[in-house]
Design a protein around this nucleic acid. Structure first.
Lengths: 147, 147
DNA sequence: TTACTATCACCCACTTTTCCCCACTTATTT
DNA sequence: AAATAAGTGGGGAAAAGTGGGTGATAGTAA
């Protein structure tokens, strides 16, 4: 993995639907990237090259109904994006609805992608799962003792 | 393990969120390291090379919801850090909130990482668990006899 | 084809945040 | 006790974030 997105950034969507991508992330994204429906109620943001690799890997999925539906979900929401001169992007209405975005938004870096979350949704998710995290971490750090 | 962090250092965070890393620790950290949400209410500090190994081990996690959430928790809390000329770092707001950092902070060395604690939180944790440590140690070092 | 409307991107001005630098204080060493 | 190193606080320049206005473009209906 060449790009490694990290960090948590609190942003606001203005009345025109514009969202600032933090300056620190813009270089890694490049000026040509894709925003699409993500898993668990957020939006995924991929640099163009990463996106193309993902699409490629999906070609190998078997042509069964589940796979077709997943492709529909993933591809139909995808929008090409550029920055305006202020470093902002426009989130389309269907995506705003899908991720339930209100005014307060959190952008997080998760490895090869960014995720755009409604603030409340993400905070709820993280606090609800906090106990799980230490279990997962225990297993990762010392799998022989754990369990 | 090449670097071995040890010791306990009492520091203060100033109003701008700046925290001095004790001079004795700076060499071992290098000028490129990562601060992230740790377990049990503290922050972890890893030298870059150690961090990269950890990320590598996380690549083995399956793409299921629990694992995705864990990655969100772990990576969104991560921030690249450098020292300013005074040997300080900036702790971002989300991390200050997470670790409940007030003015008084304790930095401890724990093997391959540093941990940043709110003073009260750490002292409470240690006194509450003092009696248990010998039992815990017994279990950790001879798990077959324990339990 | 023309006039009207809605949308979008750009530009400008203002506010907020971040980062760097300097000066002072405290601690440590000899 | 002096000298050196480490810790601490604050000011200011530069960068980033924010909101609103304006003109261009495209779509629609007359």
């Amino acid at each position: 993995m060449i790009v490694m997105f990290m960090g948590e950034y609190h942003q606001k969507i203005d009345e025109k639907g514009r969202l600032i991508i933090p300056a620190k992330l813009r270089n890694d994204l490049g000026n040509d990237f894709v925003v699409t429906r993500g898993l668990d109620g957020c939006l995924f943001v991929y640099p163009k090259t990463t996106w193309e690799k993902i699409i490629e890997s999906y070609q190998t999925l078997p042509n069964i109904k589940d796979a077709r539906n997943f492709m529909r979900f993933f591809l139909s929401g995808a929008t090409n994006q550029n920055f305006d001169k202020q470093g902002r992007i426009n989130i389309s209405n269907p995506l705003i609805k899908y991720a339930n975005l209100d005014k307060d938004v959190i952008i997080i870096g998760v490895g090869d992608r960014l995720e755009i979350w409604d603030k409340q949704t993400l905070e709820k998710l993280l606090t609800e799962n906090e106990e799980n995290f230490s279990k997962i971490a225990d297993n990762l750090f010392s799998p022989k003792l754990g369990g």
